[in-house]
Design a protein around this nucleic acid. Structure first.
Lengths: 148, 148
DNA sequence: CGGGGATTGCGCGTATACGAAAGATGCGGA
DNA sequence: TCCGCATCTTTCGTATACGCGCAATCCCCG
């Protein structure tokens, strides 16, 4: 954390390149880009894939609940779901017990697509971490999980 | 969160929550949110602040070059610059030597704003890393830089 | 010196992302 | 039972983010 005092009006200050928000933005950029280079042929964005994978994992879910499980704002998940429904990957039916809710289910097409892509997704995770060796990867994942 | 191999066609697979792209997206979300909670009163997004900070650091720059230095796509930086210019923080003048270019400069208002916020930005970096102790922070920054 | 590839900036289209607010519905306590 | 508050979903507005195509300009190389 060597920070040098530049001896001007302000006190010691971090280098711009050490801004954590900036580093995280760039890492996220790179991750999304790698994801699209692997799964892009199926026209799925990282967000879309993750929403479908969560649904595949949990079965039926309400829209809001899926949003929480996928870390997406209700306003955001709405558009994601709408586009996936338009493409025939997700089905939305009214909840019989609670008329505020819509129940989401993967269609067979959607289910097959996700199953087939889960392995590719793991490949993406590996390529993101490619600059690190095995021990560092575990360490990084642990730290990243705690910062999230 | 116990996910077990479900004994189907596929082999052992990572937990969904270990998808690196997803973890990075969430970390980025949290970082942006913390940034806005500290600098939001000045109506500056992380991206806008970083673009201005780079300009403050380097002086005059062309639009494309600023984009590269701030890790932003030419199409993206265009909108960022346009909004900052509309708000009077950045001035765009035609380059005398290369008529394709526009030279970007911070206005005095923009310059004062950035100077005053640089310390706050460092505060944000610290709050993002708050869950980690001093040693882990250095480690995390190092790993994050290499993954970027 | 002339032509073609590269660079610069713009506009369009799509997809996140989130705050704010609105409308419908559910639910618990007085 | 009814009122008020919480929840679910949608819509609006703003801002990233990036691919693609376009036009103007630059500059290198033959």
């Amino acid at each position: 954390m060597a920070v040098d005092v530049t001896e001007d009006t302000q006190t010691q200050r971090l280098n711009l390149d050490d801004q954590v928000a900036h580093l995280l933005r760039r890492a996220h950029q790179r991750a999304s880009s790698l994801f699209l280079s692997v799964l892009g042929e199926h026209q799925l964005t990282p967000t879309q894939f993750f929403a479908m994978a969560r649904l595949h994992e949990r079965g039926q879910l309400s829209q809001n609940r899926l949003g929480r499980l996928a870390a997406m704002d209700p306003a955001t998940i709405q558009g994601v779901i709408r586009r996936l429904e338009e493409r025939g990957y997700i089905q939305r039916t009214p909840d019989a017990n609670d008329r505020r809710r819509m129940v989401l289910t993967l269609t067979s097409r959607g289910s097959e697509l996700v199953s087939g892509l889960l392995n590719h997704a793991d490949t993406v995770s590996e390529s993101i971490l490619e600059p690190l060796d095995a021990q560092e990867r575990g360490l990084f994942l642990d730290l990243l999980r705690r910062v999230t």
